[in-house]
């Protein structure tokens, strides 16, 4: 158990010590929030959907949770060759504890990241309808981070070099983001897009956050939670299996 704690603590310490990285990682969500939020605002309003900033804020929070959790897992690739992870793989600690510790660390960091984006959103004018549901919104952030930290571990354990990294970025991470309904409502699309958005686990995370913060959603919150939990459980098992197979 101490190993899990140590690994979690390590991820947290690394995060809080790299201030420049924290600021850099907030740049992209800010750009989306401000430029898209205000830029597309009037079009969105005219289409009868209400305030775009309100709509997109949970999506952008979901995006930053997605990015930081999946990258924490993909970071394995680097860490196992040039980092502390290699040293841990030969320590008398079961691999599963290493994997859990790292995943929990990645989850914690990405939820903090999500909360930071939420604060920025509040500053630029985002107003949640119901503060009472706020803790549930954090639960959804945790759900998103669980799913994608586990996915990151699964992919990161299988990757062999940095070229694969670009591939993952363009063909996995970006599609997950764009298909999640972070930027557009999940209704009125053609069947192909409709199917794709419903396969994407992030859709349910962001939908859940929307239903908590804005009180409107496409699916029911129960569906959202169940889908996230199932996807998380499956990916954790896959991640743990891939992680146990790492050879250096």
């Amino acid at each position: 158990m101490t190993a899990i704690y140590v690994l979690w603590l390590r991820e947290l310490k690394r995060y809080t010590r790299s201030r420049s990285q924290i600021i850099a990682s907030l740049g992209q969500p800010m750009l989306y929030l401000l430029v898209l939020g205000f830029g597309l605002g009037s079009v969105f309003q005219r289409a009868g959907f209400g305030s775009y900033l309100q709509f997109i804020a949970p999506g952008i929070i979901g995006m930053s949770v997605l990015f930081s959790s999946i990258f924490s897992g993909l970071g394995l690739l680097w860490d196992r060759q040039f980092g502390f992870l290699k040293e841990m793989l030969v320590a008398p600690v079961p691999r599963i504890e290493i994997m859990i510790g790292r995943t929990l660390g990645g989850m914690t960091v990405s939820v903090i990241q999500g909360l930071l984006v939420l604060i920025i959103a509040l500053i630029v004018g985002f107003r949640p309808v119901n503060w009472g549901h706020f803790p549930m919104a954090i639960v959804f952030m945790l759900g998103i981070s669980l799913v994608f930290a586990a996915l990151g571990v699964a992919v990161g354990s299988s990757l062999q070099d940095m070229q694969g990294f670009q591939l993952i970025m363009n063909f996995l991470v970006m599609p997950i983001y764009f298909l999640s309904g972070a930027m557009f409502p999940l209704s009125g699309q053609g069947w192909a897009l409709k199917i794709a958005t419903r396969i994407d686990p992030l859709s349910y995370g962001i939908d859940g956050m929307r239903s908590m913060l804005l009180g409107s959603s496409t699916f029911s919150p129960v569906t959202d939670i169940v889908v996230l939990a199932c996807a998380g459980a499956v990916l954790l098992v896959v991640g743990a299996y891939r992680f146990s197979k790492i050879e250096i």
């Binding site: 190993a3 040293e87 600690v93």
Partner: peptide, 25 residues
């Protein structure tokens, strides 16, 4: 073991690197 490639955590201090190792062992 000391690997050919570095396996320290650059963001942690020397003491923390030692500590973490001690806990793991």
């Amino acid at each position: 073991i000391v690997f050919q490639d570095p396996s320290l955590d650059g963001d942690l201090t020397a003491q923390e690197n030692m500590d973490f190792h001690g806990v793991l062992y």
